[in-house]
């Protein structure tokens, strides 16, 4: 009996030690993972792809993905700015198990997915704002519109006629910027002509300056004006090389710019923070109005020109 008890005790000690060995290995595996097995998968769905316009955002996103060990999947609709395709892509990505979504919505229709709570993963929008629940790291449309209107008001008297072009009438973000511009120009008693991509050429001769708060269309308009040798001042947004060159040669009279790299970084950081349950970023990309004469100011340089890639 005594011997049996002794055997049991010894077996118990050996078993306890064996369990301790396994436990310590388990603790090491948990505490010091060699490879992150569960990398976050974040899908980024553009409304169109243009490296000049979206390249900086993408670089910022990649930097954040590197910092937070996330995996990014960049997707673009085959037809640029197609809301239905974008919707399909969003649904497909959620179905494929994406842990988070960064969406640059093509239209209100896409934003509706967020409002209808059909998107069940942490999400962020860029350019167009959905509601308070979904963060958006693009500068406030109201502010952008105000800065553009303010710049035009500084250059022209209220006798001038402004042509406000909306190349993407369904795009909420751009629409909001234009509404804001219109509001402030009306306050300053400017004459306003509103156009879309279908009729803006007809209205162009009647206007003294053009406000087009969308980068890709603005770049296209710049090349059009250059080809047509039309010297109509343009006010726009963005930080692409063409916009900077436009500012430099004064075909763009003023541009509202912000740091696209930071914008992309914050978007992915927001999702990663939510997934990792860490405090979300509190910063917002700084937004400034730039003209040719102040584009090389040290603080403006830091925002306008990408560094070190």
């Amino acid at each position: 009996m005594k011997r049996k008890l002794s055997n049991f005790m010894q077996l118990g000690i050996v078993a306890a030690l064996g369990i301790s060995v396994l436990l310590s290995i388990f603790i090491q595996e948990v505490s010091f993972p060699t490879v992150s097995e569960n990398r976050m998968e974040i899908s980024v769905i553009f409304r169109e792809w243009n490296s000049s316009t979206w390249g900086e955002i993408r670089l910022g996103m990649e930097k954040a993905a590197s910092d937070y060990q996330a995996e990014l999947r960049f997707l673009t609709p085959q037809e640029a700015n197609s809301p239905s395709e974008q919707q399909h892509l969003i649904e497909q990505e959620i179905k494929n198990g994406a842990n988070g979504l960064v969406v640059i919505p093509a239209a209100e229709q896409v934003l509706q997915l967020f409002s209808d709570n059909k998107i069940t993963v942490p999400s962020v929008t860029i350019e167009s704002h959905s509601d308070e629940q979904i963060p958006c790291f693009t500068p406030d449309s109201e502010k952008v519109g105000q800065l553009l209107a303010q710049a035009a008001a500084e250059d022209f008297t209220n006798q001038a006629t402004a042509l406000l072009i909306n190349p993407l009438p369904d795009n909420t973000g751009i629409q909001e910027r234009l509404e804001s511009v219109q509001k402030y120009l009306i306050e300053d008693h400017f004459s306003i002509l509103s156009a879309t991509s279908d009729n803006w050429t007809e209205l162009l001769p009647q206007s003294d300056f053009v406000i087009l708060p969308e980068t890709t269309s603005a770049v296209w308009l710049l090349s059009f004006l250059e080809e047509e040798q039309l010297a109509i001042p343009l006010y726009t947004v963005g930080y692409s090389q063409e916009i900077i060159n436009g500012l430099e040669n004064e075909s763009i009279r003023a541009a509202v710019i912000w740091n696209g790299y930071g914008e992309g970084y914050l978007a992915v950081q927001q999702i990663a923070s939510k997934l990792l349950k860490t405090p979300p970023p509190e910063s917002q990309p700084a937004v400034i109005l730039v003209r040719k004469e102040d584009m090389y100011e040290p603080e403006n340089q830091k925002i306008l020109f990408p560094i070190g890639h």
Binding site: K63, G262, Y265, L266, P281, P285, P306, I307, G308
Partner: peptide
């Protein structure tokens, strides 16, 4: 002069 997060620092983030 140089910082790996220089772009983010410049952007104020």
């Amino acid at each position: 002069i140089y910082h790996p997060d220089q772009q983010l620092i410049y952007a104020g983030i």
